[in-house]
């Protein structure tokens, strides 16, 4: 696998009056070229923070340590000014509430022109390509002269996808983009995203969602986060067939599937809740909810390489 995104020991905290919230606490991983990496975890596990930190550190998000390399070049995520060179051109994002991300007072054409000018280009020089892509996502040319509110939710979603991939970024961060959609729209959006990738509009996708069954459809590997830490990462098929970490295992077995009825087979959730990230517990952060807990778990679990490209952070395998 040719590594094209490498994140080393990244720590991103939120500064609050009561101290630091350790949202991303020492996460390292690699992502291959032309890969779709799925990031899963419960809400508040730091997956969105991880994705957002790769493009823009908005206060109170604070860079603590760690390095990021994209296509062999270091990405200075701690330097807002230097990041301008990467933002949008090489790393782009479809934010969580993308539908509301468009400025309502500007026509889409003007909006795109502003954005392109911000990054040293303009609408004119991209017109042909924009029209081609609009056609691909089944949007008429006339939307360019409309205001964002004139578009339906689905149209806005497609528009945002076109806008955020216009500069053919190397890395696209998709933050919970399908979570609010119903199943048929969800499928259509994902199909479109994969089509964009196969046409080379984006090289790799960092796909954040809490829904593992969606990741099964789109991701080549899955990274599971829990309370700011990476707990397991492996290829999609492997992680779904034989999850190693107790958390991953419980998360997957809690998913309802067609064909399973309450009366026939009762599924179980994970008891308890994630720990507060302001003062996370010592050692393994999952220990309070883990059925396999033992005394060793009070120490920081090591990251174990089970096989090539399958890592897990648990004392069970150390």
């Amino acid at each position: 696998m040719k590594v094209s995104l490498r994140v080393e020991n990244l720590r991103i905290y939120y500064r609050t009056l009561r101290g630091y919230v350790k949202a991303v606490d020492g996460v390292s991983f690699e992502m291959g070229d032309e890969e779709v990496l799925g990031v899963a975890g419960e809400s508040g596990c730091g997956k969105s923070t991880l994705g957002n930190s790769l493009i823009l550190l908005k206060p109170p998000m604070t860079y603590m340590e760690g390095r990021v390399f994209l296509d062999g070049e270091e990405v200075p995520i701690w330097d807002n000014e230097k990041m301008r060179r990467f933002r949008y051109r090489r790393i782009s994002i479809i934010p969580q509430y993308a539908m509301n991300a468009l400025n309502p007072t500007k026509k889409l054409k003007v909006l795109m022109d502003d954005l392109l000018r911000e990054h040293g280009s303009d609408f004119k020089s991209h017109t042909a390509e924009i029209l081609r892509r609009l056609k691909m996502v089944n949007l008429p040319e006339s939307v360019l002269n409309m205001y964002p509110i004139e578009l339906s939710g689905g149209m806005k979603q497609r528009m945002v996808m076109v806008i955020s991939t216009l500069m053919n970024p190397s890395l696209l961060i998709a933050d919970e983009i399908t979570s609010a959609l119903d199943v048929s729209t969800q499928k259509a959006v994902i199909e479109m995203l994969l089509e964009f990738k196969s046409r080379g509009f984006v090289r790799k996708i960092f796909f954040i969602t809490h829904d593992i069954s969606v990741l099964y459809q789109i991701a080549s590997s899955i990274l599971v986060m829990y309370a700011g830490k990476l707990v397991e990462k492996a290829s999609t098929d492997e992680i779904l067939e034989k999850p190693f970490h107790p958390y991953t295992e419980m998360l997957i077995s809690s998913l309802p599937k067609i064909g399973i009825k309450y009366g026939e087979r009762k599924l179980k959730g994970i008891p308890g809740q994630p720990p507060p990230l302001l003062k996370p517990p010592e050692g393994c952060r999952f220990k309070d909810r883990c059925p396999y807990r033992h005394s060793k778990c009070d120490e920081e679990p090591p990251i174990v390489e089970i096989s090539d490209d399958h890592v897990v952070s648990c004392w069970k395998y150390a």
């Binding site: 691909m136 048929s184 499928k187 069954s213 099964y216």
Partner: peptide, 23 residues
């Protein structure tokens, strides 16, 4: 039927349509 086909499942992958244009 189309709803059933669009459910993300963990035992079966979607049949993706090649063209992006839908409907």
């Amino acid at each position: 039927i189309s709803l059933m086909e669009s459910i993300p499942r963990i035992d079966e992958r979607w049949r993706m349509r090649s063209a992006v244009i839908q409907g």
